[in-house]
Nucleic acid binder design. Structure first.
Lengths: 281, 281
DNA sequence: ACCTGAACACCGTTCAAGT
DNA sequence: ACCTGAACACCGTTCAAGT
């Protein structure tokens, strides 16, 4: 059994980026705090209302704060209506004037992040496959950078304005490449499902009774378990223990992505070719 | 815009099956209750301890009750440690002697269902692709029948005994078909990820602020929204509104499944063919 | 060894009352 | 119109105490 662990690459980069962002935010906060201490406000100014909310409570401010909370914490659980209220200097009840419920808040957070993080190139028909690959890789980067997005995204039909813009763009690229309507529509969903589920399973994922372990550690333990399995009963798992629990995530992602693209490309060339099957109707 | 709604088929079948199961269980419960009423136990027997737990509290009994609870309710939220305690005639605390925490309980429930619901055929190398398709379709059926399974499965590396048996079987089929090791290992994950995510997105899925609507209704509303979009800005979404929100789920599932299989088949035939690329190492 | 009861530290949501 | 405070109906988990 070869012993190198080639897991992280992308994950490591994402973690570094996350750490950097957190550090920057921390620095800014410290600075603000120091200024406040050094240069006091005139005492006849009215003090900011309880808890230190400066800005008025608006839907945007709420979404801002929610993203802040999520970026700071780990996982979707870091965001609760109560903590969000606290972050904004109120109680949880106040939020319900601006937002119907938590589900709607998550819709808003999701759409905000799509808008900020997922710009789209204009369609270049000649290289549509490459463009789709780039889009998918970019999406995966974002999903690794903020693991909670996958948790929000999964099982949510993205219909916010930014999501629509993105969907529109991907559809444009696929159709420009000659993918027929039905397959283009299905393809967009297939793609989003794929990179979301992939990110979820490799990053956020790996729900486990042991709580806090990082995904790599969990996989390492599973790997050991696979090796300890009785070989007569589990010859294939024993043989493939390495491949099942390790492997470069980028290559692995590419494997599925290529399959999807091949499927779309096949549909495109079938549509171009003279039809052999009679049409119904 | 053609107006037939061809959505349900599989979903409808699954719902019917679910209803039938529930009815059967209800009948059994009623019968038991009637017998109990008609033929009283001798009064010198000690009464069953509080709440009516008959069987001793064991890990198996707990998993049984959890599945019962999930089958009866809607979605994963129907299962809470408190309700589970109630179902078994105790408090939630008692469960923690047998089960480390809720996450472990879900591991157990998941493995139980895999064992009960997912039998595997012996590999027949000649028709491995057909076998894989059958396996995937069977899995999708199960996932539609009990929507909560997808919620449990997603992000969980299946390592229970039954899951291992299943994985072992699928690996055997893929390798018998000539799929090389790496692609076989990745392929199993790709497949499970695919049908889990697919089921999650189409059944359980569609998290939405409006709470209780059935998936079909939600999709219908989204469809209307897409049609109402400004056509100059969203020409593609407007064109494809039908294909984006409707369509036969089986065909759609097949589309992705075929892509995955084509990818695996390509890897298999590449392995058989004389190698053109030099090997590293 | 196994179970109980009560407590702890949380949730999302509602709603009368305030401004 | 917007926000507050308190309450409601829940969570998962822990742990001393009991048998």
């Amino acid at each position: 059994m070869s012993e190198e662990m080639q897991w992280p690459t992308r994950a490591a980069k994402a973690a570094a980026k996350r750490a950097a962002r957190e550090a920057a935010r921390e620095a800014a906060r410290a600075l603000r705090e120091e200024v406040r201490r050094a240069v006091p406000e005139p005492p006849w100014w009215s003090a900011p209302r309880r808890g230190g909310r400066q800005a008025p409570l608006t839907r945007d401010a709420i979404v801002d704060a929610a993203v802040r909370l999520l970026d700071r914490g780990e996982g979707l659980d870091s965001l609760s209506m109560r903590r969000l209220g606290e972050e904004l200097g109120t109680g949880p009840g106040s939020l319900y004037w601006h937002v119907r419920n938590k589900e709607e808040l998550l819709d808003l957070v999701f759409d905000r992040l799509i808008g900020e993080q997922l710009p789209l190139p204009a369609p270049k028909p000649a290289r549509w496959q490459q463009q789709v690959k780039d889009i998918a890789r970019r999406a995966l980067d974002v999903l690794f950078e903020r693991p909670y997005i996958a948790e929000i995204s999964i099982g949510r039909f993205p219909v916010g304005p930014n999501a629509l813009e993105w969907t529109e763009g991907v559809l444009a690229i696929l159709r420009a490449g000659g993918v027929p309507d039905r397959e283009a529509a299905w393809g967009v969903h297939l793609l989003t499902t794929y990179f979301t589920a992939f990110a979820f399973e490799t990053q956020t994922g790996l729900k486990t009774p042991e709580g806090e372990a990082r995904p790599e550690e969990i996989l390492e333990r599973i790997h050991a378990h696979f090796h300890a399995l009785p070989r007569e009963r589990f010859p294939n798992i024993a043989d493939l223990a390495d491949e099942l629990t390790r492997g470069d995530m980028d290559e692995r992602f590419e494997f599925g992505l290529d399959a999807i693209l091949a499927g779309l490309a096949a549909a495109a060339s079938a549509a171009r070719a003279p039809r052999k099957r009679p049409r119904r109707g």
